[in-house]
């Protein structure tokens, strides 16, 4: 089980961020290793990712579904992905909190992911750190996106 949480401050208001965080084009650019991300139903995305955990690299295929949506405050990502090197499923709660400075939002996230297969038996030690790194990468890319 990988559990991690964190927060990031983005210089956009919650109302501005809400649609951006659901825009397939944006998500595809920001999610590390994302090779394909298409909307396939209401709040349901098909994804293909290429991710490396230390020595284990692999491609994962799966779905991400958004549920419990309360605009513009919060939603839950339900993740289900499988690949040659294992699987991951679980949830990530996303909260968009107003930030004291105007036109900024604190994004809080809390993930509970169950991983199995080779990523669990070989990469377990690395998963936590890797997941945190991937989250950081996501927000870095998101900021880049917003600047352009």
């Amino acid at each position: 089980m990988i559990e991690f949480k964190g927060s990031h401050i983005i210089s956009r208001s919650r109302q501005e961020l809400w649609p951006i965080l659901q825009d397939p084009a944006v998500l595809k650019r920001c999610i590390p290793g994302c090779e394909e991300l298409v909307l396939n139903g209401e709040h349901l995305y098909d994804v293909r990712l290429k991710v490396g955990f230390g020595m284990i690299k692999g491609s994962f295929q799966g779905t991400v579904q958004l549920t419990n949506m309360v605009e513009p405050e919060r939603y839950v990502l339900n993740i289900k992905a499988e690949g040659r090197t294992g699987f991951a499923h679980g949830t990530t709660r996303i909260q968009l909190l107003p930030h004291p400075s105007p036109a900024a939002t604190e994004i809080r996230f809390e993930s509970h992911l169950q991983v199995g297969g080779m990523i669990a038996s070989v990469g377990a030690r690395l998963c936590q750190g890797a997941a945190r790194m991937l989250a950081e990468q996501f927000f870095r890319e998101l900021e880049k996106c917003l600047r352009n």
Binding site: M1, Q114, V115, G116, M118, A120, S121, V122, A124, R125
Partner: peptide
Amino acid sequence: YDESGQLLTGTLMD
């Protein structure tokens, strides 16, 4: 094994 039954000591590295 972790709480979901995944073997975490799956190689001689672990």
